[in-house]
């Protein structure tokens, strides 16, 4: 029996909800300082810190974040072991 309002919901579909609008501060990643340690990827509650695939002048794959979803919590900046991420005001 097919339901007009199906109770099964498709996987991964919250991506339609761009939570970036919540942000008052945004993380800025200094790609040159980034050592690609993966800490920001691990700690990001949104799961939107990621390796870009590109290398900096030291030959390290650097990370970035997705501002569509980043809520600006600052965890990545706080936990970055080399202070490659700083938070700055995000005026929209």
């Amino acid at each position: 029996m097919k339901l007009k309002y199906p109770l099964e919901v498709n996987p991964g579909t919250t991506i339609t909800n761009k939570t970036g609008g919540w942000r008052t501060q945004k993380p800025i990643v200094d790609h040159e300082i980034c050592i690609g340690c993966d800490v920001c990827r691990k700690v990001c509650p949104e799961g939107v810190c990621f390796p870009t695939g590109e290398k900096n002048s030291k030959g390290r794959i650097f990370y970035d974040r997705d501002l569509d979803f980043c809520k600006g919590c600052g965890l990545c900046a706080k936990e970055c072991p080399v202070s490659a991420i700083r938070m700055e005001n995000d005026f929209k």
């Binding site: 339901l3 007009k4 309002y5 109770l7 099964e8 919901v9 498709n10 996987p11």
Partner: peptide
């Protein structure tokens, strides 16, 4: 075929689901 069951229905959708 991963699906989510038992999701949260807000006032936007709860009534239609209950009427159904």
């Amino acid at each position: 075929n991963p699906v989510t069951l038992g999701s949260l229905a807000t006032p936007d959708s709860y009534m239609e689901i209950r009427k159904q």
